[in-house]
Write a protein that binds this DNA or RNA. Structure first.
Lengths: 193, 193
DNA sequence: GCCAAACCTTGACTGGAATCAATATTTAGC
DNA sequence: GCTAAATATTGATTCCAGTCAAGGTTTGGC
């Protein structure tokens, strides 16, 4: 167990060391804040709608889906992969109940840092503030591109854009979730291939 | 002309003074960086697809639409109102040609700050770095909520969510652009009312 | 490795939004 | 305020993607 935690921390450290303006001291100060290891079995929930998201997570292994449970349907709005951070972002930022569910699609191992530990650190460390700002910019740009995908009227073009941008998804995630993510039925996605 | 510029700066200052942790000195240092006044007539472009976005804009008056010119269609992805900042964000952040057009829907007056002036200032001023980070978080949360709007299969529910969140749009923007923003035809929007 | 469950594919049918078209209304600009 | 242009509405029709249903395939878990 402790081995998994330190393995995850090593992955996170490797990622942070690629950011040129983050010093080794900063990174060493940051890593211990990731105190908790979360292990999920397939179909376990990291968070359910209605709960407040108190943590940011780093995915050490596994895949998750993020979905919006609307009436009967479940609308898939994204996925979480190894080496990425995930959380129910609006809930995490505004400290309010989540509209979203995060569910493991296979066995997952995640590191957790609490909101307070994270925001305190970012407020105090200018380099990490810059890092987080650039992460937010990167994610925001991604969301804006994604919006085009969703606005295209033809299922075919929506699929083509996803294939161009994230072909790896199709190897890792059941097609029915991808179909939902592309706002089409699984049957339509199947017929397009 | 100079009067309009200082009027715009006064609007911007009023907005910034509402952020508790921004000192008057910081604000006074920031404002002079908004050097340029841009005036647009109806249907003029602030930026066209293919151009690089070198500025961030503050809308002093008027309304703009942001759209993606895809093949024949024009897909509306957002609007810019008075007292808000706008730009072709992916282009501004990554210094690459814009995929989007920003067009005035009526006479607009905007203040402009260059990317370099803006980013230099934010890198040097920790309080403004915090402000910008929180702006990014706020905008990102908005985009995530918007994504649900787009994923809902029923035009009726998409419209209902927009009416709940931004009823003011319907007073300021031609319906045909709102229809595009809601990914439905103008006829469908008309029939829903 | 085996079994059961989950997932995917294919076909037939249906419904709802897009399109086309014509008229009415609003708005911009002189 | 007037005129032309832009926008909005309403109706008739079409067509594309959703639904339903059945069979086939893959995958997870013991």
């Amino acid at each position: 167990m402790a081995a998994v935690l330190s393995e995850g921390l090593a992955m996170l450290a490797t990622l942070l060391r690629q950011v040129p303006y983050l010093s080794e001291e900063d990174i060493e100060a940051f890593l211990p804040l990731w105190k908790r290891l979360v292990t999920l079995k397939r179909h376990d929930f990291l968070i359910q709608a209605g709960q407040v998201e108190h943590n940011l997570y780093f995915v050490a292994s596994g895949v998750l889906r993020i979905y919006y449970p609307s009436q009967a349907e479940e609308i898939c709005v994204g996925f979480g992969y190894a080496n990425n951070m995930v959380c129910s972002f609006p809930s995490f930022v505004d400290n309010r109940p989540s509209d979203y569910c995060l569910q493991a699609l296979k066995k997952c191992e995640l590191l957790a840092i609490s909101r307070t530990d994270f925001t305190d650190f970012v407020e105090r460390n200018a380099c990490f503030a810059r890092f987080w700002r650039q992460e937010l910019e990167r994610v925001l740009v991604g969301r804006i591109e994604r919006e085009i995908d969703l606005l295209l009227p033809e299922p075919e073009r929506r699929l083509a854009r996803l294939l161009a941008r994230s072909p790896h998804i199709f190897q890792r995630v059941p097609k029915k979730y991808i179909a939902s993510y592309l706002r089409m039925s699984p049957e339509t996605l199947s017929r397009l291939r």
